[in-house]
């Protein structure tokens, strides 16, 4: 497999945690184009989160080649993270934590700015646009710890949208969302991909998917066992079937 300008290009990569006997990611090769909308499925412990954190350079790739946004992940992890949005899976915010939703969303811009620079007009505009896009105007000035889990999840998605990334990685972004909000957020993500931002999402809930053909990547035991594009109503059955050990 050779990289031809894809936003993600992985060639036979392995990722292992320190002290672990076996790598968590084993020999994955994958190419994702700009504007592609892909769902990563598979059973618990299959390596889905590890795959996302290998892509943005937060975990060390031990073997293979990985290029994201045209840069070598093993050498330019920090630069890649400035261009890649990543919505984490698990979070807990103290109810008294002294940050408003708006401040958290603006933080999405901090990595882009570099050291010793203050947020400027463009940064506040990007944050406001993300707040409007996710419909967070009413809660923007509330402390994030006092919001519901679903609202906090929307804030974290908005934080990464404010970053204006080239690639969006999301780890179970629907886990705290009700059905309507799930459909709404799914629509927002679909719009991002139409604008050319690749969206790669670990997901277990398939009821709010956009009405378009979707690429599904199913992982099992650290490897990709399914990589195909199908209609949204077939996604759940295909993921379910591929996830089961043969």
């Amino acid at each position: 497999m050779s990289c031809n300008g894809e936003i993600i290009c992985l060639e036979n990569i392995y990722t292992a945690y320190e002290g672990a006997a076996y790598p968590v990611i084993r020999g994955i090769s994958l190419a994702i184009r700009q504007g592609e909308y892909a769902i990563v499925g598979g059973p618990n412990g299959a390596g889905k989160t590890t795959l996302l954190e290998s892509i943005n350079g937060m975990l060390t790739i031990t073997h293979g080649n990985a290029y994201v946004c045209g840069m070598d992940v093993r050498r330019h992890g920090h630069e890649i993270r400035r261009k890649v949005g990543y919505v984490v899976q698990s979070f807990y915010f103290d109810p008294l934590t002294p940050f408003t939703a708006e401040e958290v969303i603006t933080m999405g811009r901090y990595g882009l700015m570099g050291l010793l620079k203050r947020p400027g007009e463009a940064d506040y505009r990007a944050a406001e646009a993300a707040i409007r896009l996710l419909g967070l105007e009413d809660i923007a000035h509330k402390p994030i710890g006092t919001l519901s889990g679903g609202q906090q999840q929307k804030v974290l998605i908005a934080q990464n949208i404010a970053k204006e990334p080239e690639l969006m990685l999301l780890d179970e972004p629907f886990s705290n969302l009700d059905l309507c909000t799930r459909e709404f957020v799914s629509g927002v993500l679909r719009e991002l991909s139409r604008k050319g931002i690749a969206v790669v999402m670990v997901c277990h809930a398939f009821d709010g998917l956009p009405d378009e053909r979707i690429r599904i990547l199913v992982m099992r035991d650290g490897s990709l066992c399914l990589d195909e594009t199908c209609d949204p109503d077939l996604v759940e059955a295909k993921v379910r079937r591929a996830s089961v050990v043969q």
């Binding site: 901090y110 990595g111 050291l115």
Partner: peptide
């Protein structure tokens, strides 16, 4: 800005490129 992001959540700060 870096300190406030780290105080908020170290992992999210790292993921955002800080």
């Amino acid at each position: 800005k870096e300190i406030s992001a780290i105080v908020f959540n170290r992992k999210i700060a790292e993921a955002s490129g800080i």
